[in-house]
Design a protein around this nucleic acid. Sequence first.
DNA 1: CTATATGCAAAACCTTTGCACGATA
DNA 2: TATCGTGCAAAGGTTTTGCATATAG
Lengths: 147, 147
Amino acid sequence: MVNVSEVVENFREFIKSKGLKYTPEREEILREILECKEHFDVDELYIKLKKRGSKVSKASIYRTIPLLIEAGYVQEVYKQNNRAYYEVVLNKMPHIHFICLNCKNVEEIEDERLVTLIKEYADQKGFTLLSYHLEVFGVCNNCRNEE
Amino acid sequence: MVNVSEVVENFREFIKSKGLKYTPEREEILREILECKEHFDVDELYIKLKKRGSKVSKASIYRTIPLLIEAGYVQEVYKQNNRAYYEVVLNKMPHIHFICLNCKNVEEIEDERLVTLIKEYADQKGFTLLSYHLEVFGVCNNCRNEE
DNA sequence: CTATATGCAAAACCTTTGCACGATA
DNA sequence: TATCGTGCAAAGGTTTTGCATATAG
């Protein structure tokens, strides 16, 4: 699992190295995101924070997420209903998303061979790999049987 | 290349099989989309249609695209500035995008092993494969050397 | 003739932004 | 104390929707 205090510390250094200010809001948002096991969107995050008694605004969330992405902790994975969904990428094996176009369900799979394959190409091209995501679109078993 | 009249005919059957009505607007939109070699968004499409003297409204485009997606001709590939970008998936080999986060360059690669791997999983899950795309983020060789 | 589609304009929605106030370094 | 961040509310821009009219079957 992710070592939360280590990440928090790294984030603080990241923020400072950019000449920005480390604020309680930014830390709250980071900590809450690190708790997310699944994909999340801004609204969900906002509600979770509210429930904990936090006073952060959505504006701050919208302004903090790009920093977390830049720091390499978070990644936007897809959009649905005009809403962006994110996930924590720390210590997470890159994975394949199987997205059903009918029921919109997203299933996640991890695969070693894919990792190998991509690394091979990256090496070949002299490409410094940061992250990636593979999205597969189709119709899931359930939906197909219902038709 | 895509056989346009064949696709148009298939789409007509698709529409009818759903008990919907086949209209000139729907066909105009389909034909225009089949002309798109690159990714496109609703606005671009609308402007192209206008230039040809078409009278279709954006509303109709927005209402037609989901049908084209359902029919399997079109796919949403990404969003940028809160705008959805689509592409025609007919006769297009699935591909890997290597995206350089520095210079924003996108390089496209086709790979057989990836196809095999995904088909394997899809079969396993009873997932009807329509399309997919793999995006790899990092820093390209040129940019790395410049730093 | 009936059910569905269209176009228009307004609404809905997520995200961004301006501004005054507050907090960090 | 200067700079940057925050919250609020309003703006911005894409997509959706209600409604009257038009059209397909």
